[in-house]
């Protein structure tokens, strides 16, 4: 069998690549394999370097819509301005917490749920299942209706006193 890359030499190596869960197999000659590996390594290095650079130099320009805390302020003080900051900076905070704490999902005590909320939550769960079923049956009209109903039931973050 000839090399799939250059089509000249005899293929001696089978290269298997897994990318985003997709497996591809290619038959290559030694020369093309070497070329491939060098390119690949350069790509990987470039990717690693670019994340390192962006981490150390670029401070994301985000401001909490509720309290006005900026991400730069948070980086300086280590303190957040309000509960909403966790939403505003979620993308940045999640990996930070995962690294510092070794976990990123809370376990343990939770605020009590009222009977009314409990009923609402189970109704929402029911709607979610119906919506999934509708999508599977390709009944998109029904799925869209259920989605809107779900949306209407999701509480807006309102001020409680």
């Amino acid at each position: 069998m000839l090399c799939e890359e250059c089509g000249n030499n005899q293929a001696e190596v089978i290269m298997t690549t897994v990318l985003n869960g997709q497996t591809t197999t290619r038959h290559l000659c030694r020369e093309c394999l070497r070329k491939y590996q060098t390119e690949n390594l350069q790509n990987v290095l470039a990717a690693v370097l670019s994340t390192l650079v962006s981490k150390s130099h670029e401070i994301p320009d985000i401001t909490c819509p509720r309290c006005g805390e900026t991400y730069a302020e948070f980086q300086k003080s280590g303190m957040l301005g309000c509960a909403e900051c966790y939403q505003a900076f979620r993308r940045q905070l999640t990996p930070l917490l995962a690294r510092a704490q070794g976990h990123s999902q809370h376990a343990g005590r939770r605020p009590p749920v009222s009977e009314e909320d409990q009923a609402r939550l189970s109704r929402m769960e029911e709607l979610r299942k119906l919506m999934e079923a509708a999508v599977n049956e390709e009944n998109f009209e029904e799925a869209a209706r259920l989605r809107d109903e779900l949306k209407a039931m999701t509480p807006a973050r309102e001020e409680k006193e």
Binding site: R66, C67, G68, E69, E73, S77, M79, L80, G81, C82, A83, C85, E159, K160, E161
Partner: peptide
Amino acid sequence: NYEDLPFRSK
């Protein structure tokens, strides 16, 4: 922390 009050810095 109370849900509706800002944290100490704010």
